[in-house]
C-alpha cells in the first residue's frame, strides 16, 4: 500500500477578522493509525480539518499529503471525509446508494457515468457497513447509526487511504458507537490513516491509537495512554469539563495516595485512577 502520511509543518491560520485559529501546528500522521483529535469547541479542530481539505489556506506553514500538495492529493482521491450528522441535509432527495455512488465520482469520466466496477465497489462498501438492505432508502428515513454508516460507506467507495471523521460519535447510541469503532479499527488495520475529531473523551481510549490535544496549538500528542492525562486534559479543556476526583478519605481508610478521577463533558466519561502524576486510564469506552 502506498505511503499516505499527512505532514503538517508549522501551520498557522489567522482568519480575515484577525482571529487566530491555529498557531504553529506541526504534526506527522502515519498510515495504519487512528488519531483522535481532541479539543474544546473553538480550539481549532475544524480549522485543522479544513486545512487538510484545502478549504482554509494556512497563513503560514504547509500541509503535505502523501508527499503531494493538498490539491493533488484530493485530485487523486486520497482523502475521504465523513461529515458531522448535523451538517448533512437529510431531506435531500437522494437514496443511500446514490450517496455512496458520489464517492466514486473521482474515479469516473467527465459525465460521471458509473461503470460495472463502480457499481460493484458501491455494493461492497454497503455490505461492509452492513447497509446493503437499505440501498433504496431515502437517507432521511434512516436511524442515527445507519446515517453514519452510509457516509462511512461513501468514504470506502472512494477508496482513499486517508479518512477524516468529524465528531463521528455525536448523537449515536453506545451500541452504534461500538460497532462504528470496530469498523474503523478494521479499516486502520488494512493500512488506512484515520483522523477523528471528537470532544467525546471516553471513546478515545477505546479505539484511538494516538491522541492529539489541541487548543490553537498542539498541547500534547502521542500514544493515548501517555497523552490523555488529567493534566493535559485540564489544560486542553480548562474549566469546560466536569471533573470529579475521589481520593483520600472519600475512597480509602488508609494513607493510600491513589485517587479516582472522572472527566466528562456530558458524553461518555474518562476515568483515571492512581497516585497524582501516575494516573492510569481505567475506563474509557470498552469497559
Amino acid at each position: 500500500m502506498a505511503d499516505c502520511s499527512i505532514e503538517l509543518s508549522q501551520i498557522s491560520v489567522t482568519y480575515p477578522n484577525g482571529k487566530s485559529a491555529l498557531d504553529d501546528v506541526s504534526l506527522t500522521l502515519r498510515e495504519g493509525t487512528i488519531y483522535g483529535l481532541i479539543g474544546a469547541n473553538g480550539a481549532g479542530k475544524s480549522t485543522l480539518f479544513k486545512s487538510i481539505m484545502g478549504m482554509v489556506k494556512p497563513t503560514a506553514g504547509q500541509v503535505t499529503i502523501a508527499g503531494r500538495s493538498v490539491r493533488d492529493a484530493l485530485r487523486q482521491n486520497l482523502v475521504s471525509y465523513v461529515p458531522q450528522t448535523e451538517d448533512v441535509d437529510w431531506n435531500f432527495p437522494v437514496l443511500v446508494e446514490d450517496v455512496v455512488m458520489t464517492g466514486r465520482y473521482g474515479h469516473m469520466g467527465f459525465l460521471r457515468i458509473p461503470s460495472q466496477r463502480d457499481k460493484e465497489v458501491v455494493q461492497e462498501a454497503l455490505q461492509r457497513v452492513d447497509m446493503a438492505g437499505f440501498a433504496k432508502r431515502q437517507i432521511g428515513e434512516l436511524s442515527g447509526g445507519q446515517k453514519k454508516r452510509v457516509f462511512v460507506a461513501r468514504a470506502l467507495a472512494q477508496q482513499g487511504q486517508i479518512l477524516l471523521l468529524d465528531e463521528p460519535f455525536a448523537g449515536v447510541d453506545i451500541k452504534t458507537e461500538e460497532s462504528l469503532a470496530q469498523l474503523l479499527r478494521g479499516l486502520a488495520r488494512e493500512g488506512r490513516l484515520i483522523l477523528v475529531s471528537t470532544h467525546n473523551l471516553g471513546s478515545v481510549p477505546s479505539f484511538c491509537d494516538e491522541a492529539i490535544l489541541i487548543d490553537r496549538s498542539v498541547l500534547a500528542a502521542g500514544p493515548v495512554a501517555t497523552t490523555l492525562t488529567q493534566e493535559n486534559l485540564l489544560r486542553a479543556f480548562g474549566g469546560m469539563l466536569r471533573d470529579v476526583t475521589l481520593g483520600g478519605q472519600a475512597l480509602h481508610q488508609d494513607p493510600d495516595e491513589r485517587a479516582l478521577t472522572v472527566l466528562t463533558d456530558d458524553e461518555r466519561p474518562l476515568v483515571l485512577y492512581g497516585a497524582k502524576g501516575g494516573e492510569k486510564i481505567v475506563i474509557g469506552g470498552r469497559g
Binding site: M53, G54, M55, L74, R75, Q76, N77, V79, S80, Y81, P83, D87, V88, D89, F92, V94, V99, T102, G103, Y105, G106, F110, L111, R112, R154, Q158, G160
Partner: peptide, 20 residues
Amino acid sequence: LKWKDLAALFFDEVHARSIG
C-alpha cells in the same frame, strides 16, 4: 454535462472537494 457534479456540490461541499 455538469448536473451530477453540481448535485454533489449542493449535497455536500466538503465531500465534493474531497473527490477533486
